[in-house]
Design a protein around this nucleic acid. Structure first.
Length: 479
RNA sequence: GCCGAGGUGGCAGAAUGGUUAAUGCGACGGACUGCAGAUCCGUUUCCUGGGGGUUCGAUUCCCUCCCUCGGCUCCA
């Protein structure tokens, strides 16, 4: 198992990672509340944690990755009521749409996506435990957490409850003993989904579904908890209070990881600001590789500003440069080559460099997942290969694979260099014939006809590239 | 007000107590081309928010001020 370090929001420093029971690692990431469609800000966080899980897997850990789905909360109910939909059906629909997008994005490391409402028995059991231990009380059909009882409340966020602006956004609730107390069980309102409980019909409050899930799947303590920076308070703070209060064991989590926000012209992307770019739109316009590249091209803890006109266009250009040698290698390797025609060996210094690069890539990522630095290293490799691309044809498969190994790393860990199926294979004969016609036109100096054919193919989504007397073609890049 | 994260070239965005502060985008020049695009090569000196301090040396460590963003019970 490779050693690595990670920034822990609780201690506010980069610390060496020590697993609780190696090689297993429990990773819990706060997932979506699918009140609406997912946007590009959400995807940033989840792509990053996908890379974390991929890296740990590569390094020999056995990761159990769980992402909860808060499929019922005030917002879901509110949104459903506005459209006359059933709340659970609405969140289910949005979640399924997110899963389609996330699969397209190559997010493939999450083992479970538990729905909050599938854990009602666990939630009720936890609430009973909290009441027995004096951390919660029933009042008017609801149950509230006694924040004052949990001395460590505020350790993660640095917030002190007595400093919270009273009444800022805290609902004034006469059933609560103290304003900072929060609901772990909410008394049912007619027309809303509700479950029976010792305190009457109701539904779970926020925060508690996560601890119910992790207590069940990981036990009272686990390794890594991730999420967006905006969840630190009150959500993660409250999770700690709920779990440690219920079990008496601490700490709930050994390392808290928080991803920076994606901003839009300096402001956080959120529905209420009206500056949301739906993930599905960005995927359609630029494809998954460009988006992944864009996210991973910044450090995960830095804020990343998203400019709808510029950001992904720039990422597209940069990714094209980065991936061109990778594509060429894959293309040659995927082609049938006559027996004995390609036996060349790669220069020894290149092979050595490729091997050394893999180590450097792992080492870079092992320092708090510096994906940006890893990408810079991969750019270096592409610069090395780019001028030699035309000499690759003679190399043996084994030699080509050696030169490809840094890109294989990028594919395995970063999820880049995955070639999109273009569905153009059946077109190939037609395109080749058209190109041949253009070549004949060029041969007799009829450039008007040649350019007409080129423009026609371009309009059909095929770009031509004249080099060294031959003409290559490829599907036009998405723009 | 309190808590937290940031401020780096035209732009995006890394890193480090120490030679020319990475990488990319863009721009400019060249090669290639019938032309264009794509590609390849080269150039892009003057960039670390302001002010103090520690140090032989600070972008990095400390203090302070300014600005931006996030959180302060809906948030990835």
């Amino acid at each position: 198992m490779r050693r690595f370090s990670v920034y822990d929001s609780m201690s506010r420093e980069v610390r060496p990672f020590v697993p609780i029971s190696p090689p297993r690692v429990g990773l819990f990431v706060c997932g979506l509340t699918p009140q609406d469609e997912a946007h590009v800000g959400h995807a940033r966080t989840f792509v990053f944690f996908d890379v974390v899980a991929r890296a740990l897997g590569r390094w020999g850990y056995r990761v159990l990755s769980v992402q909860n789905v808060t499929n019922l909360d005030d917002k879901v109910i509110e949104r459903a009521a506005a459209s006359g939909a059933d709340p659970l059906a609405l969140s289910d629909r949005n979640f399924r749409a997110w899963r389609r997008s996330s699969e397209e994005l190559g997010i493939r490391t999450v083992n479970y996506f538990p729905y909050a409402t599938d854990y009602i028995p666990e939630i009720l059991a936890q609430i009973r435990g909290l009441i027995e231990r004096g951390y919660a009380y029933a009042s008017a059909g609801s149950v509230y957490y006694t924040v004052a009882k949990f001395a460590k409340y505020g350790a993660l966020s640095g917030q002190r409850t007595d400093a919270l602006r009273p009444g800022a956004r805290i609902e004034v609730d006469p059933a609560k003993r103290a304003p900072e107390d929060f609901a772990v069980w909410k008394a049912a309102t007619p027309g809303e989904p509700a479950w029976e409980s010792p305190w009457g019909p109701g539904r779970p409050g926020w925060h508690i579904e996560d601890t119910a899930i992790t207590l069940r799947l990981f036990g009272p303590r686990y390794d890594l908890h991730g999420g967006g920076l905006d969840l630190i308070f009150p959500h993660h703070e409250s999770e700690i209070a709920l779990a440690e209060g219920a079990t008496g064991e601490a700490p709930l989590v050994n390392y808290w990881m928080h991803g920076g926000m994606l901003t839009m012209r300096g402001e956080k992307m959120s529905k209420s600001l009206g500056n949301v770019v739906p993930l599905a739109d960005a995927l359609r316009e630029h494809g998954p590789m460009v988006l992944r590249f864009y996210y991973l091209n910044a450090h995960y803890r830095s804020p990343l500003d998203f400019d709808r006109e510029k950001s992904l266009a720039e990422a597209r250009e940069a990714y094209a440069t980065l991936s061109l040698p990778a594509d060429r290698l894959a293309e040659i390797l995927g082609r049938e080559r006559p027996e004995g025609s390609a036996t060349g060996e790669a220069p020894a210094e290149l092979v050595a460099a490729a091997g050394a690069l893999a180590d450097r890539l792992d080492a870079t990522l092992a320092e708090d997942f510096n994906t940006r630095e890893a990408i810079a290293l991969l750019f270096g490799w592409s610069r090395t290969l780019a001028p030699r691309l035309d000499r690759l044809e003679q190399l043996s498969d084994a030699a080509l694979e050696e030169l490809r190994s840094p890109y294989r790393w990028g594919e395995e860990v970063l999820g880049l260099f995955v070639r999109e199926p273009v569905g153009s294979e059946p077109l190939a004969p037609v395109v080749e014939a058209t190109i041949a016609a253009r070549a004949r036109a060029r041969g007799r100096g009829d450039y008007a006809e040649a350019d007409r054919i080129r423009a026609e193919l371009s309009a059909a989504g095929i770009e031509l590239e004249d080099r060294g007397g031959a003409t290559r073609w490829h599907p036009v890049r998405r723009s």
